[in-house]
Nucleic acid binder design. Structure first.
Lengths: 360, 360
DNA sequence: GCTTTCATAGAAATCGTTAACTATGACGTC
DNA sequence: GACGTCATAGTTAACGATTTCTATGAAAGC
């Protein structure tokens, strides 16, 4: 007699086999449906499965069947407004392709990131999605390249989602979005409105790929319109609301003459708006403000924020799609997703008299 | 000679054992560190591990070692503003307890929810966290109870995070927050400011536990202050910005005489503010508005929103903590987390003349 | 009537790791 | 010098499924 399934541990194929008077092999075949089984046997097995409330052991199946069908999603923080959208996209595509989705937060700790990658190798994750821009230091890039090779050797795949490639021969799938193009477009828009003196709020963390891209677009737009760029960069910014607020106050306390502010993110812009309002400045009549990201917040600000739209959800979906089907998409292992300006109410023509003396 | 690790598939303990001239057992022991191994042997094994870039196979280990050390996080949508915070908390606590975190979105599909629970049983997830309020229909509760028992039988645990218990003898860990208390407090605050006619925006989906709780607090505050409750409920609301906007327009088009609006969520409140602004009404001078949730958005609205704070991250942390350590916290399998009013700028005394004729 | 084919079912090997037994010297003790 | 102890390492049997490979009876072909 086969073992009685003790309460607490779950029934196995053996238990089902015993209960239905067949062999474990037959049970497996009934469940997989990849081998002829007589109708009578199938019925008996299924009945036993139902009665014992049998569920397969995914670990055991993975052990023999090869892969684990998992995608890992590693992110700085789950609550960053755009991160959640990327996560949504990753989860959606992973599910669509029949994979489960592991999620991990690094909270900015590079050690933790390494640990997690190692963990994912153990888990045999099919793809490891690293979300967000990165600080493009020599040491980080080198470590990332090691990670890419390590994952590659394990049959997994590093996916960079929202940051540029690491190098020419690095085995990684890269899906980024056009930071530079969007910044170029929105800066050009400001220039076409008549602005000649625009402050860029976001420099400070040098080497951050996302911000660098946006800054590059900002600069390129100035060059294209043959405008000189006054160095309006402020102190290091942490890309939260508070830093946008503080940076704007700093800007206002000087004798700067800007007529528009390009905030590196919508969240920063929300702080900018508070500081401007406190200073008694109207937006866009006195100062124009634009953001970047087009998160839902942008529509809830007063005035509604002119910004650059990024389809973060699509970013996540595309990343997973290309990573999992890289045999079919061998050419698409580096993709750039387009961005475009969303015109709302926070940017308008500059005030008539350019050098405003009433600034504070 | 042991098998040559072919390129593509990863080295196993056997390969490491062969490379370092010991047995598989010894390799396992070096890696686990739970058995004496001579320094020389340890060194040789570790060297081989490094050279082969060996990583353990988590599946195989889980198979023999019992559990899988995984927490599943099942949510309607990853991008709901409060969901992301709960997710953050769940991930954080899961990591702190040495577990991995699986995340899945149902997108409101009950079929999908069932499927996912089944999947989690296969994965042997230690806890399955269901996030968010629920529609408390007979059929749903019954299904959820089945799920609870099914998970219990598999040695897993259903965790309800943000909704009330299913029944007295259901094996589930419940962590909810005080919807009713918060609503009571913020309604009382409005009443103490002098409001006697408050519209509640959010009824309509009957039986939704979250909204019902908030509505109950709203009603209880009226009773406590011996105020009659005029039935200001509007049409069904989907709890997004748009529905708040539409519902407010509906309210304004009637000859209602309310002086304050209680929006069921901050997101709804953001729509309310837009509609009021369009109608030329000032907040809080003409109409007071309060929300619920205290998501970051609340501070970005104009005026900043008076609302009820819910510590969603703590909600997630607590849920996982109690679920994983239920031996030590047998008494805490139903916890209610407190909420409190955050006073900002969107609520003030009602305008002098109560029956405003200039409403539209 | 005897072999061939087919449909169905079971036995046994396998996946990669761990853990419960064994085994073997070295050492100290009486 | 025989014996028990200790430190170290190897053998072997799990874990729970899948997947060859093998076996059997029935139908079919000549």
């Amino acid at each position: 007699m086969a073992r009685q399934p003790t309460s607490g541990d779950r029934p196995t194929v053996k238990d089902v086999a015993a209960a239905s008077g067949v062999s474990a092999t037959t049970v497996s075949r009934v469940l997989a449906g990849n081998y002829p089984v007589s109708a009578a046997t199938r019925a008996r097995v299924l009945k036993a499965v139902r009665e014992l409330d049998y569920v397969i052991n995914a670990q055991a199946r993975a052990l023999v069947g090869g892969g684990t069908k998992t995608v890992a999603f590693i992110v700085h923080d789950l609550v960053g407004p755009s991160f959640a959208y990327v996560g949504q996209g990753v989860e959606q595509q992973a599910t669509a392709e029949g994979r489960l989705c592991l999620v991990c937060a690094t909270h900015g700790d590079p050690e933790r990131e390494l640990e997690l990658v190692e963990l994912m190798r153990e888990q045999q994750a099919e793809a490891v999605v690293l979300v967000g821009g990165r600080v493009n230091s020599r040491s980080y890039v080198e470590r990332a390249m090691q990670i890419a090779h390590a994952l590659d050797k394990s049959g997994s795949r590093l996916v960079l989602c929202g940051s540029p490639p690491l190098g020419p021969d690095v085995p990684a799938t890269v899906v980024e979005y056009d930071n530079e193009g969007g910044a170029y477009a929105v800066t050009s828009y400001l220039i076409s409105l008549g602005h000649r003196d625009i402050a860029f709020l976001g420099a400070g963390e040098p080497g951050h790929t996302t911000i660098d891209g946006r800054l590059r677009g900002f600069e390129r737009a100035h060059e294209a319109h043959q405008l000189p760029m006054t160095p309006h960069r402020t102190r290091a910014i942490t890309f939260d609301r508070e830093s946008g607020y503080q940076a704007t106050r700093d800007l206002l306390s000087g004798d700067r003459t800007f007529t528009a502010i390009f905030a590196a993110t919508d969240v920063v812009a929300s702080g900018v708006l508070v500081a401007l309002r406190e200073a008694g400045l109207r937006v866009p009549e006195d100062v124009s403000v634009v953001g970047y990201d087009d998160i839902p917040l942008a529509r809830d600000l007063t005035p509604e924020l002119t910004t650059v739209h990024v389809d973060y959800e699509e970013l996540g979906r595309t990343a997973v799609r290309y990573a999992l089907n890289r045999d079919r998409h061998a050419m698409s292992q580096h993709t750039v997703i387009g961005t475009h300006v969303i015109i709302r109410d926070s940017a308008g023509p500059p005030p008539r008299r350019s050098g405003r003396a009433d600034l504070r």
